[in-house]
C-alpha cells in the first residue's frame, strides 16, 4: 500500500480514483439539496432520512473521509515532488497549450478545502451561524426533526456568505473541469475518437454541477427560497 506512493503514476491513479468518488459525492449532494425547492417538509424529511441511515451514513462518511485523505495526501505528495523537480524557476515562462485551470489545481484544491471546513462548520458542526442550527421542525407524520431547511435558507440570507459561496464554487468549477477530463487520461483512456467528447462532458458536467450549487444561494437571494416561520 505504501509502495503506491513511491510511484508517481500510482499516486496519480490514487488521486484520480479518490477524486472520482468526490465527483460522485458532489453530484449526490447536489441532488439531495435540490429538495430545497420541493419545500421545507421534503427537505427536512430528507435530512432526517440521512440521519436514519445510521451505520450506513457512517460508512459513507468513512469512504468520503478516506477518499478525502487519499486525495489530499496524494496531492500534497505530488506537489512537493513537483516543486522539488524544478529547483530553479524560469525567468520567463509561457504556457503553450495548457489551460489556467490545469495549472491551478493545487490552488483551487486548497480553496476547496477551505470551503469544506467552513461549510462543515456552518451546516454540520453548527459552529458558525449557530443561531439556526438547533431549530426543530415537526414533519407531517408528527416526528420532530432538525429544521435544516431554515438553517440553510437563513444561512444564505447573508450577502457575504452567498458571495463567498459563489466564489468558492467558481474555484470548484475550475478544479472540476480539469479533474473530470484528467481522470480519464490518468486512468489510461485517450483516443482521438472520443477525446473531444470527454472534453465536452468535462466542461458540461462541471458547469451543470456548479450552476446547480450556485442556484441555491441565488434562489435565497432572489427570494425564491424563503423562510417560512417554521412550525
Amino acid at each position: 500500500m505504501i509502495g503506491i506512493f513511491r510511484s508517481t503514476i500510482l499516486t496519480k491513479i490514487a488521486m484520480a480514483l479518490s477524486g472520482l468518488i468526490w465527483i460522485g459525492f458532489s453530484i449526490a449532494h447536489l441532488s439531495g439539496h435540490f429538495l430545497l425547492f420541493a419545500g421545507q417538509e421534503a427537505y427536512n424529511a430528507y435530512g432526517q432520512g440521512l440521519k436514519d441511515l445510521g451505520p450506513l451514513l457512517w460508512l459513507g462518511r468513512i469512504i468520503f473521509i478516506i477518499s478525502f485523505l487519499l486525495h489530499s495526501f496524494s496531492g500534497i505528495l505530488l506537489l512537493s515532488r513537483n516543486k522539488e523537480a524544478r529547483p530553479v524557476q524560469y525567468k520567463a515562462k509561457k504556457p503553450i497549450v495548457s489551460t489556467p485551470q490545469s495549472r491551478m489545481m493545487a490552488l483551487t484544491g486548497i480553496l476547496l478545502f477551505t470551503f469544506m471546513v467552513y461549510h462543515l462548520a456552518h451546516f454540520t458542526w453548527g459552529v458558525v451561524h449557530a443561531e439556526y442550527s438547533h431549530l426543530t421542525y415537526t414533519l407531517s407524520d408528527g416526528r420532530a426533526v432538525h429544521d435544516v431547511y431554515t438553517m440553510v435558507v437563513a444561512g444564505y440570507q447573508n450577502v457575504f456568505v452567498c458571495l463567498a459561496y459563489v466564489l468558492f464554487m467558481l474555484g470548484f468549477g475550475m478544479h472540476l473541469s480539469h479533474a473530470i477530463a484528467s481522470v480519464v487520461q490518468t486512468l489510461g483512456f485517450n483516443h482521438p475518437m472520443y477525446n473531444s467528447l470527454v472534453k465536452k462532458v468535462a466542461n458540461g458536467l462541471s458547469t451543470i454541477i456548479i450552476l446547480g450549487y450556485i442556484s441555491i444561494p441565488a434562489s435565497v437571494m432572489l427570494g425564491v427560497l424563503k423562510l417560512t416561520g417554521g412550525h
Binding site: 523537480a85 495548457s98 490545469s102 477530463a181
Partner: peptide, 18 residues
C-alpha cells in the same frame, strides 16, 4: 523516471505543445 527526480504528470499537456 521517478528515481531520476522528474516531476509527475498533471495532464496540462504543455509537453505536447512544446
Amino acid at each position: 523516471m521517478d528515481q531520476e527526480g522528474f516531476g509527475s504528470c498533471t495532464n496540462t499537456y504543455d509537453c505536447e505543445g512544446a
